[in-house]
Computed example of a mutant assay.
Amino acid sequence: MVAAAGYRRWPRDTAHLSVLTAAGHRGRGLARATASAAVAHALSRSLLPQWRARPDASRGVAAALGFRELGTQLSLTFRPPGT
């Protein structure tokens, strides 16, 4: 497999997208093609596609598909004291 995309249904009829492209196959439009299909599938089921992109490349694919940035996301990892 060189590229895949899909979504998980979240509350309020949201489709949270996930897109993966194998490192050796990036830059060929595969992420855009697979993500476009996932977005179309979600829309056909009256879901609102959501793309949470942090890496610049992912943000570029999202922008190419018409997504707009509306905010930022902060991810934290908990480390128990003493670890």
Results as ranks from 00 to 15, higher is better:
Gly60Glu: 09
Arg32Leu: 06
Leu48Gln: 08
Ser18Pro: 00
Trp10Ile: 02
Leu47Ala: 00
Val39Ser: 01
Leu43Asp: 03
Ala35Tyr: 01
Pro80Thr: 08
Gly29Asn: 05
Ala31Asp: 05
Arg79Lys: 06
Arg79Pro: 00
Ser58Asn: 06
Arg59Ala: 12
Arg45Ser: 13
Ala31Thr: 03
Pro80Asn: 04
Ala22Asn: 07
Arg26Gly: 04
Trp10Tyr: 14
Thr77Pro: 01
Arg32Lys: 10
Tyr7Leu: 11
Ala38Trp: 01
Pro81Thr: 13
Ala5Ile: 01
Arg9His: 10
Arg45Pro: 03
Ala38Lys: 01
Gly27Glu: 04
Arg52Leu: 08
Glu69Cys: 12
Arg52Thr: 11
Ala64Lys: 09
Ala57Cys: 01
Leu30Thr: 00
Ser36Tyr: 00
Ser36Val: 00
Pro81Phe: 10
Pro81Lys: 12
Met1His: 11
Gln50Phe: 04
Gly27Thr: 00
Ser36Gly: 15
Ser18Tyr: 13
Ser58Asp: 10
Phe67Cys: 09
Arg28Glu: 09
Pro55Glu: 02
Ala23Glu: 15
Ala40Arg: 14
Leu17Lys: 08
Met1Pro: 11
His41Pro: 00
Ser75Arg: 12
Pro55Gly: 00
Gly24His: 13
Gly24Arg: 12
Leu65Val: 07
Ala5Val: 02
Gly82Lys: 06
Val19Asp: 06
Leu48Ser: 10
Ala42His: 10
Pro11Tyr: 12
Arg32Ala: 09
Ala31His: 03
Leu70Ala: 10
Asp13His: 15
Leu20Phe: 04
Arg12Ser: 13
Pro49Glu: 06
Arg9Ile: 15
Ala40Tyr: 03
Leu43Ala: 05
Gly66Gln: 08
Ser46Gly: 03
Phe67Gln: 11
Ala40Val: 04
Arg52Val: 11
Arg54Trp: 10
His25Lys: 03
Leu76Gly: 04
Ser36Lys: 05
Arg68Asn: 09
Phe78Cys: 09
Leu70Thr: 14
Trp51Leu: 06
Tyr7Met: 11
Asp13Ala: 15
Thr77His: 12
Met1Ala: 15
Arg59Lys: 07
Arg26Glu: 10
Trp51Ser: 06
Pro11Val: 15
Leu76Trp: 11
Arg45Ala: 15
Leu74Asn: 02
Ala38Asn: 02
Asp13Gln: 15
Leu70His: 11
Trp51Glu: 05
Ser75Gln: 12
Arg52Ile: 10
Leu65Phe: 06
Glu69Phe: 03
Leu17Arg: 07
Ser18Leu: 11
Leu20Trp: 07
Gly6Thr: 13
Gln73Gly: 06
Gly29Arg: 07
Arg26Asn: 04
Ala23Val: 11
Ala57Gly: 03
Leu47Thr: 01
Val61Cys: 07
Gly27Ile: 02
Leu65Ile: 07
Gly71Val: 09
Asp13Asn: 14
Arg79Asn: 07
Val61Leu: 08
Ala57His: 07
Ala15Gln: 11
Ser46Tyr: 08
Ala42Tyr: 10
Arg45Asp: 13
Ser18Ile: 11
Ala23Gln: 12
His16Asn: 12
Ala4Ile: 07
Glu69Asp: 09
Thr21Trp: 05
Pro49Lys: 05
Gly29Phe: 08
Leu47Lys: 00
Gln73Phe: 04
Leu48Val: 09
Gly6Glu: 13
Val39Met: 01
Phe67Leu: 08
Ala37Asp: 02
Arg32Gly: 02
Ala42Cys: 09
Thr14Trp: 13
Pro55Asp: 01
Val61Ile: 12
Thr14Ile: 15
Leu20Pro: 00
Ala40Asp: 14
Pro11Ile: 15
Thr34Asn: 02
Ala40Gly: 03
